[in-house]
């Protein structure tokens, strides 16, 4: 790892200030991706601004049909949070399925979405739930937030503060993990909310995306049967040693149906 100057601000203002002053500053949330990348010497920030002590970025609240989660809230806290479990149970389950227990104790919502790994879980949740990302300067809809592989709408020095998730009527998630890394090889998040059904896919393409045909079909009939014979073109999907594009396309169909099943089951249990 290249060396860098370490900053440990205890307020949002100080964090933003440190970053703006640095030659090539980078915020560090949980560091669960950023540290491995730096260890591989693939990134060499001059300054690392650790957000671990910025209390303003932490915490969970549920009110008026919105689950609001601070960017620096760890996956473990989201997974274990009773309010999240009641409001959007699958969101807690998704957080509880990221990485492994140790990663979940460090990794955060904000870090995950700002990194926008093509195989990360949270981007699918944000996109399918129609979440809003609040930054230090604006609000960005999930539809506009994830712009490409490891790319987001965040500008230089812009920091995600929290994410607001509208509580859906029903939502489900199904993930098929990569056997080695356990990242999603295909993950499909389905939600049925006030502005209709949304289906978001992670792991399968360079960036999380929605499938409008499935959304349409599920709007008419929210059941696995509605999308049973629907195929997804393999053309733009990832192709690697773990899964070909064709297999990923197939898995999207299977995982989408299972996600719908999961949503129905959770709704029934609620």
């Amino acid at each position: 790892m290249y060396d860098f100057k370490f900053h440990n601000p205890d307020s949002l203002a100080a964090a933003l200030e440190s970053c703006s002053q640095a030659e090539d500053g980078q915020f560090m949330a949980g560091g669960q991706t950023m540290i491995p990348v730096m260890k591989q010497r693939l990134s060499m920030p001059s300054d690392v601004i650790d957000l671990g002590s910025v209390e303003d970025l932490k915490g969970i609240s549920v009110a008026d049909g919105v689950v609001s989660i601070g960017a620096m809230t760890t996956h473990a806290l989201v997974a274990a949070d009773g309010d999240v479990q009641r409001a959007i149970p699958v969101l807690a389950a998704l957080a509880g399925g990221i990485g492994d227990p140790h990663v979940r104790n460090r990794g955060t919502l904000g870090g995950s979405i700002a990194n926008n790994d093509p195989a990360a879980d949270y981007p699918a949740a944000l996109l399918a739930l129609g979440a809003n990302v609040h930054t230090d300067r604006r609000q960005i809809a999930a539809d506009d937030f994830f712009t490409g592989m490891f790319e987001t709408a965040l500008e230089e020095g812009e920091l995600a503060i929290r994410v607001d998730f509208p509580v859906p009527k029903a939502a489900g998630y199904a993930k098929f993990g990569n056997p080695a890394s356990r990242y999603a090889m295909v993950g499909v998040f389905v939600s049925q909310g006030s502005d209709g059904v949304r289906v978001a896919v992670t792991g399968a393409a360079p960036c999380v995306f929605r499938i409008s045909e499935m959304e349409k079909a599920l709007s008419n009939n929210f059941s696995p049967a509605a999308i049973k014979d629907m195929t997804v073109p393999a053309a733009d999907l990832n192709n690697d040693i773990h899964a070909s594009a064709e297999y990923r396309a197939h898995l999207i169909g299977v995982m989408a149906a299972r996600a719908v099943g999961d949503a129905i089951l959770r709704e029934g249990a609620a």
Binding site: F6, N8, I35, G52, H102, V103
Partner: peptide
């Protein structure tokens, strides 16, 4: 760290200050 298991290879020493 503070009672929770973490990977000490994926945490900076200064983050444990």
């Amino acid at each position: 760290v503070d009672g929770k298991p973490v990977k000490s290879c994926t945490m900076l020493a200064l983050q444990a200050d």
